[in-house]
Every structure is written in structure tokens, then in C-alpha cells.
Amino acid sequence: MTISAAAVAVEIDGKCLLNDVPLCIEPGQIIAVVGPNGAGKSTLIAAIAGDITPTEGIIRHHDNDLQTLSFLDRAAIRSVMAQSQSVVYDFSVLDIIAMGWVRGRDGESARQFGAAVSAIVEECAIAELLGRTFNSLSGGEQRRVHFARALMQLWRPRGSANSAYLLLDEPTANLGLAHEVRLLKKLTALAADGIGILLVVHDLNIAAKFADKIALLHSGRMTCIGAPKDVLTAERLSKVFEIPISIDPNPLTIKYY
């Protein structure tokens, strides 16, 4: 029961954005995708999510070829928090969060909805935003609401055997420090509950601190994937990011986490 990509290549308008990329996300695992701008990080998320069809290779969700799964099946397996969205009409924050509910609308699942909303609103500390319209929120507040919506989509009754996955593209952009820490802690807790997580981050420190595995992308290729200490070497990072990077195991450590 994993999400996996084998030899995935994506070509758009004759430009090769991803080439021969392998990846496997297991339940409970956090994989951070890092790499310079234009490395193909967002394309990788989009391909894994099923937004774009790979030109070559195959993506499997729970052993099924992603292309054979219906949109609803996919929505039940993975949830995506994207970089930014605009909403045309004045939906309330609660409306937006409720949009994440993909578990059916009658009987038992409708009853679970209320419990899920209360729990998630509390975890994300967005109770004070609930009554407002989404468009009146700041960028950071909108991202917190989108995160809550992504959690709604992942929500499962306790003890449910089905594994689920969360894909995040730059989840900490625009977030204040406190909310960034809260989000990262929540990701760790989700992983402990068996959710597989793939996140794109710019901050290598966050990647090193929170990920079980780091996937280093460079010009559409997976340069290296493995444990943070193996992937994040000064020599490799300097080469990929084209600036001298040194790694210093904590002289003065400021810990927020």
C-alpha cells in the first residue's frame, strides 16, 4: 500500500521537466523534495497527484495504475495542499474547509463530519477565522485554511486500515513562525498516525530536521534520494545549488521545534 513512481518522465511543450524519476512513499514516511528553482519539484507533485499525465513511466496508488483510478478514488487516497488558489465568490472559511470532505454525505460519514471539523479547526488554530469570508483573509491565513481543508480530505475514523497520503507544495511559504512550527509538528504527528507525506520545501534545515528521506532534484532528474545525512553533503549541495554551501552540525542551535 504505497504511492510509487517508476521511471516517470514529463514533457510539456517539448521541454523535458522530469526525466526517469523513481519515488516510493510508504505509510508513515515523510519525504522532502528539495532542489533549485526549475528542478521539477512542483511538476513531480503534480504528476504524483495525478494533475498531469506522465509522458513515460507509471505512477501507482495502492498498487493501481493512477490512470485507471477515478477522480473520486484518487481523492480518497491522497490529499494535496497546493501553492496558492484564488476563490472567485465570497465563500466562508467553513465552506472552504467543508469542501475537503470527500467521504460521502449521508448517514455515518455525515455524522463524522462534525467531529472532523471541530478536531481540525482546533489543531490548525483557525477557530477565529471560521465566520469570515475566505477572500478577506491574509495570504498566510488562507494557507492555514487550505491546510485544514487538506486535513479534512485525509480524515479517517480511528482505527481505519486504509492508508492515505498528503502532498504539499511549499506548505510553509507565507506562514508566521508559530504557524510554521505548528504545521510541521502536525506533519510529524500525521506521519506517526501512518500518513505518508511528500513535501516540497526550500528550507534545507526544515528538510533535514523533519524528513525521513530527502529527494534531491536537479534539472528534472533525481540526483539522490536517501536519509538526510547521506543526501545533504556540502559537496553535493554546492554543486546542485551552484553556491558554496557548508554544513555545520549546530554551533549555536536555535530550536523552535
Binding site: L94, A98, A110, R111, F113, G114, V117, S118, V121
Partner: peptide, 9 residues
């Protein structure tokens, strides 16, 4: 106890 519970439908 849950004012949001009905919001789904």
C-alpha cells in the same frame, strides 16, 4: 454540541 455538523449538506 457541534454547530458545524450540519454544514455539510
Amino acid at each position: 454540541s457541534n454547530p458545524q455538523a450540519g454544514h455539510l449538506n
